[in-house]
Computed example of a mutant assay.
Amino acid sequence: MLDELRNQIIALACARHGLNPWHGREVDRLPSAELAALADARASQVTAAALQNSQRQLIDLFLAEIELHDPSRAARLREPLTARAQDGR
């Protein structure tokens, strides 16, 4: 699930920058700060705490990316997605 969420964030960021996300073709052309945030959001271990931290970070990145495309949708999604991240499920 976390990898798919990350893939959606990448696809949205690529669309915003006019890049082709298909099979990672132009992902490396995203701004370095965005790539670093995605790298930081990856779980470094397969532990409940690391996976939950990754989920929280990815949901924050996802909401931020959606807000750049559609602020009203991001506002509607913020509460349920944030609640999910806090539940750890």
Rank of each mutant, 00 (worst) to 15 (best):
A48E: 10
D60F: 06
P80E: 02
R78C: 01
R73Y: 13
I66F: 09
Q55E: 12
N53S: 11
S54A: 15
S72Q: 10
L38W: 01
L68D: 03
N53K: 13
N53T: 15
V46E: 09
E79K: 14
A39D: 11
A41D: 01
V46A: 13
R78H: 14
H69S: 04
R78F: 09
R76D: 11
E65S: 09
L51M: 10
D60Y: 07
E67A: 14
R78G: 03
R73Q: 11
L68Q: 14
A75N: 08
A39C: 06
A64K: 15
R73A: 13
E79D: 04
D70S: 14
A50C: 09
A75D: 08
P71K: 10
L77W: 15
F62S: 01
D40S: 12
H69E: 02
H69M: 02
R42T: 09
R56I: 02
L51Y: 08
L51F: 09
I59N: 12
D60I: 02
A48D: 11
V46M: 13
L77F: 15
A41I: 06
D70M: 03
E67H: 08
N53A: 15
R42V: 05
R56G: 00
S72F: 07
A41G: 05
P71M: 03
A75R: 13
R73C: 12
T47C: 02
L58D: 07
R73E: 05
D40G: 07
I59R: 01
E79C: 03
L38E: 00
P80G: 11
D40V: 05
A49K: 15
E79P: 07
R42A: 08
Q52H: 10
E65I: 08
E79L: 13
L63T: 02
A64Q: 15
I59P: 10
L61R: 01
D60N: 14
I66M: 08
D40E: 14
Q55M: 12
D60P: 08
R42D: 05
E67C: 04
Q55L: 07
R73H: 12
A39M: 06
I66C: 00
Q55P: 02
E65C: 00
S72G: 03
Q45L: 09
S54V: 08
A41S: 09
E67M: 01
F62W: 14
N53G: 15
Q45W: 06
D60H: 10
Q52F: 03
D60E: 15
R73G: 00
A64R: 15
Q52D: 04
T47F: 09
P80A: 05
